Structures are given as C-alpha cells and as structure tokens.
Computed example of a mutant assay.
Amino acid sequence: MNEKKLKSILEKIHDKNYDCMILTQFNNIRYISNYAPTSFAICLLKDDPIILTSSMDKELAEKTSEIPVEEFKSFNELKKLFEKDNFKKIAIESSISISLFRKIEGNWDLNIEDFLEKERMIKSKDEITKLEKAAGISHKSFKELNPMKKREDGFTEWELAYELGYLLRKNGAEKESFETIIATGTNSSLPHARTQNKKLQTPILMDWGCKAEGYCSDTTRTFVYSEKQEEIFDIVFEAHNKAIKSVKAGIKSCEIDKIARSIISEYGYEKNFIHSTGHSLGLDIHEIPSISKKDETILEKNMVITIEPGIYLEGNFGVRIEDTIIVGKNKAEIIGNLPYSI
C-alpha cells in the first residue's frame, strides 16, 4: 500500500517538474513509510527516496520504515546531497518552520505544495479499518464510563475525563486523539471549553476521541435536561441528520455546511452556530477538506469526515452532536452506532 501511495505522490512531484519533495511533518512521514518519528526526521521523496533520522530514532526507523533509512548528520551534509543530485526545484510542506526553512535554503527553488495532504484525503480500506477500530474503542469506552451515573455520584469534569482516558487505554487505544472536552453547565456554551475541576452540571457536553494504530476517532454527545435544552438539542439533531443525508461523492464541502447552517438559521439561531460543520480526519485529528462555508472541495468516495453542528447560547449552555462518516458513491455511512441519549 505504501508503494502505491509513493508512486502516486512521485507522479505529482514529477508533473510539476520538482526534483524532490522534503517531508518533515511526522504524520506525512508515517503515511508514506510506516515509520512514526519520535524525534527529528527528514524524508526526501525522489525516485530513490530516503529518510534521514536522528541517532536516537534510527533503530525504530530501521525496524518500521518501508523507505531506506540513514542517520542525519548535519544540514551541510544535506545540502551536499542536494548538490550531488543536482536539485534545482524542491517542494516543501506548508507546515515547515521558518528556522528549518532557513537551514535548507540554497541555490535551489523551494516551493510549498500540498501533495501529501491531498493524497491523504481519500482513505484506503486499511485506513478505514483503523478509523473504525478507533471509533469502536472510543464508543465502547464511553458506554462503560456511563457519564449520567457519574453525575449522580458527584464526579467532577476532571475525574470524568481521567476515567475516560483510562478506559480508552484499557480497551486498546494508544492515547486520546486530542484533549478530551467535558463541558457542563454554562461552560458548554464554549465550543472548545477547558475541562474543569468542578462537579458535573447540566447539560453535559462531551467531545472525545482516541488513536488506534495511529488513526483518530472523534465523537461528540450532549445530554440535556431542561425543556429549553431539549428544544435546542432537537434543532441541532435535525441539522446533523439532514447534513449527513446530503453527503455523497460529488457534493461540495460548502454545500453540506450550507444545509446544516440553513436548518439552524430557520429556527433563528444562525449567529449561535459559530464553527464549521465538520472536518476530515485520519492520522491527524484535523485534515482537509473542512466542511465549511469557503471550502469548495468536491467530496469523493472513501473520504472520511465529521458532521458536528452546534448551537451555543452565551453564558447559558450549548449543544453539539458529532459523528464520523465515510463518504460513499450515493450516500454516507456513519462509523459506529453510538446512541444520542442514554
């Protein structure tokens, strides 16, 4: 599979007359080689690709990488390699740091390209299996957590997040795919609220995920109690369902966002939906495309995205519902079957 990925990316590199592409982003290196760096590493994508890694990581790289590995010596040695291979035009990632950019500058043309990010948009069967595994662990752990019972027992947000982290690992996760959000009471009106050391209040908004074999899961559930909270929940749920029903190969990302946003607007809460409708995910928790107003990416079969509309009433409460879905030719498939209320 990595050989197929490499061939596809090399074709893109050659099509734009690059001699090489430099990768430093850890998950891009992992995607192309199966080696997950833990310290400094550079991958040179060319006809005879190579990974240069630190001495600390060399043994790990040699055991896992499907691309030949050598120890990184210095940037002077790297530049000598460029000169030896007569590099004139080199592609780099947009995520490269300014300090690293300056270290590799020389008598060659450096240009930012998103070859890897675009290649990673469409998931292979193996990648989808890993995403499904991560979601399965995440959902199983959530059911075992039983947050409603924890509220009755007087748990704090911190304690709930800590126990969820334990259950995720117990059930096979490597770690959380991002810092778990447990936002209760008025704190739930903050989309990226910080989990606090306070007793669980109502509503309870939980946004969590884990990594399995490097791939991420991402789910949000909100548990409501009052009549007003239920009213907002129903609106968000309608937007969530209609957005998912609209997803299929050939639709633009922005069109899905528009569908979710139009439902919420019909009920007068347009100004309270303050983020995009979703995003892609894979080795990273946020990948392209985004499901947002300005993203005109046309979805293709086997892209994997989240749908997560929300309404946030400042100083009062918020509701968000999120599922991860696989784009199909004619419809979408939700990963997992986690209930929306318990």
Results as ranks from 00 to 15, higher is better:
residue 220 T to H: 11
residue 94 S to G: 15
residue 32 I to E: 04
residue 175 K to A: 14
residue 221 R to V: 00
residue 339 P to H: 11
residue 215 Y to I: 01
residue 60 L to A: 13
residue 34 N to D: 15
residue 34 N to M: 08
residue 294 K to W: 04
residue 62 E to Q: 14
residue 293 K to G: 00
residue 141 S to Y: 04
residue 151 R to F: 05
residue 81 L to P: 00
residue 56 M to I: 05
residue 81 L to I: 00
residue 125 K to L: 08
residue 203 P to K: 11
residue 50 I to C: 07
residue 315 G to D: 12
residue 91 A to Q: 03
residue 159 E to H: 00
residue 332 A to R: 05
residue 289 P to I: 03
residue 339 P to C: 14
residue 207 D to G: 15
residue 228 K to N: 12
residue 326 I to K: 13
residue 123 K to V: 11
residue 151 R to I: 08
residue 259 I to N: 00
residue 327 V to Q: 03
residue 102 R to P: 02
residue 17 N to T: 06
residue 76 N to C: 02
residue 7 K to F: 13
residue 44 L to K: 01
residue 177 S to D: 08
residue 216 C to G: 11
residue 38 T to H: 06
residue 179 E to P: 06
residue 341 S to V: 11
residue 110 L to N: 10
residue 178 F to T: 03
residue 334 I to P: 02
residue 59 E to F: 12
residue 238 E to T: 15
residue 90 I to R: 01
residue 189 S to C: 11
residue 15 D to P: 01
residue 216 C to I: 09
residue 167 L to V: 12
residue 42 I to W: 13
residue 240 H to V: 11
residue 41 A to E: 06
residue 187 N to Y: 01
residue 100 L to T: 15
residue 2 N to M: 07
residue 256 I to W: 00
residue 133 K to Q: 08
residue 16 K to I: 02
residue 53 T to H: 04
residue 143 K to E: 11
residue 182 I to F: 07
residue 322 E to V: 13
residue 244 I to D: 09
residue 327 V to E: 03
residue 9 I to E: 10
residue 137 I to S: 09
residue 279 H to E: 03
residue 231 E to F: 14
residue 13 I to W: 01
residue 64 T to R: 06
residue 123 K to E: 07
residue 188 S to W: 05
residue 16 K to M: 08
residue 237 F to K: 15
residue 166 Y to Q: 10
residue 153 D to H: 07
residue 45 L to C: 04
residue 183 A to L: 12
residue 102 R to D: 12
residue 1 M to F: 06
residue 330 N to P: 05
residue 206 M to Q: 13
residue 188 S to A: 12
residue 116 L to A: 09
residue 164 L to N: 10
residue 218 D to I: 02
residue 336 G to C: 04
residue 321 I to W: 12
residue 200 L to G: 11
residue 115 F to C: 06
residue 97 S to V: 02
residue 92 I to K: 06
residue 174 E to A: 08
residue 18 Y to N: 05
residue 232 I to T: 05
residue 323 D to A: 07
residue 126 D to Y: 09
residue 195 T to R: 14
residue 7 K to C: 10
residue 185 G to T: 05
residue 22 I to E: 04
